[in-house]
Write a protein that binds this DNA or RNA. Structure first.
Ligand SMILES: [Mn+2]
Ligand SMILES: [Mn+2]
Ligand SMILES: [Zn+2]
Ligand SMILES: [Zn+2]
Lengths: 140, 140
DNA sequence: TCAATTTTTATAATAATTATAAATATATAA
DNA sequence: TTATATATTTATAATTATTATAAAAATTGA
């Protein structure tokens, strides 16, 4: 997905979502910062640029983008919901020390369990937790 | 893990957790009902037997059991935290129609991503969503 | 321009979880 | 056993995340 305002507008219109200023701002943010931000992070950063912004708008926009399958939810932790603009299949690793969330490639089709042959699978999430390389180094 | 009161007590004592009546009740519940219950389900069912029970005790007990690695959290949905007594490696499938959560075997080591070779992995969660066989049948 | 519709904002309501302190239960030592 | 200390549970308050509601602002189309 291209970052320009024009392109983002087109993407939204394709999904029959009106490209309001706030919606574009949220999309731009998710594309620029690929750190899987929380609602609070998105809001606190964007409100600097858009002082009238409301947190309800962030929630509304994200829920809209999720329904349109432009954004996915990352529930790697039970106490914080995070959002990800990347919809391609990939796993998430959260470092228990620094909190960073890393993307990693994962061939989910390869480990499709036999038991699930009769299930219709719509969504696949792989969440790992542990210590990231730089935190491992630091600990020594 | 055996279901008897004696055996559960021993399990808790191994982890240096005092086997109080309430803690045993929660453990028994999780073993009997392997449906990945929410705090509310656990509380509402147990309060029938233990009328003085407090919801805070359910939270306290679960957090204790999680820290002791006797129970794991299932965050397959961002709006409801569920709990699972089975600690062996397995994936979870949630049916989007009936809400049932199914366990399935998954060989997580097989699909270990290359990128993660430098990461220390402590926890692995695999969450799938879709439609379960009986709901698929019903839809036709 | 003007009315209809959509979106945003501000605020209230709801729900999940944690914190606090008093009450209860359990363990230990005299 | 009884007294005392410690741990656990309970009731309640506080906090936080999210959704609901309605008014204000922006956008659309005639
Ligand atoms: Mn990601
Ligand atoms: Mn399970
Ligand atoms: Zn780290
Ligand atoms: Zn089903």
């Amino acid at each position: 997905m291209k970052t320009s305002f024009e392109n983002l507008s087109v993407e939204l219109l394709k999904k029959e979502i009106r490209p309001s200023y706030q919606r574009i701002k949220v999309l731009e943010y998710l594309i620029a910062k690929r750190c899987h931000p929380t609602v609070d992070q998105i809001f606190n950063d964007l409100v600097k640029e858009v002082p009238t912004l409301s947190k309800a708008t962030i929630y509304n926009t994200l829920n809209l983008l999720i329904k349109a399958k432009l954004v996915r939810v990352v529930t790697i932790e039970d106490n914080e919901t995070r959002y990800d603009i990347t919809m391609s299949n990939h796993g998430h690793f959260k470092c228990e020390l620094c909190g960073t969330i890393f993307d990693f490639k994962v061939n989910i089709d390869n480990f499709m369990a036999d038991k699930l042959s009769e299930f219709k699978i719509n969504e696949r999430d792989v969440y790992f937790k542990g210590i990231c390389p730089s935190c491992l180094k630091y600990k020594k």
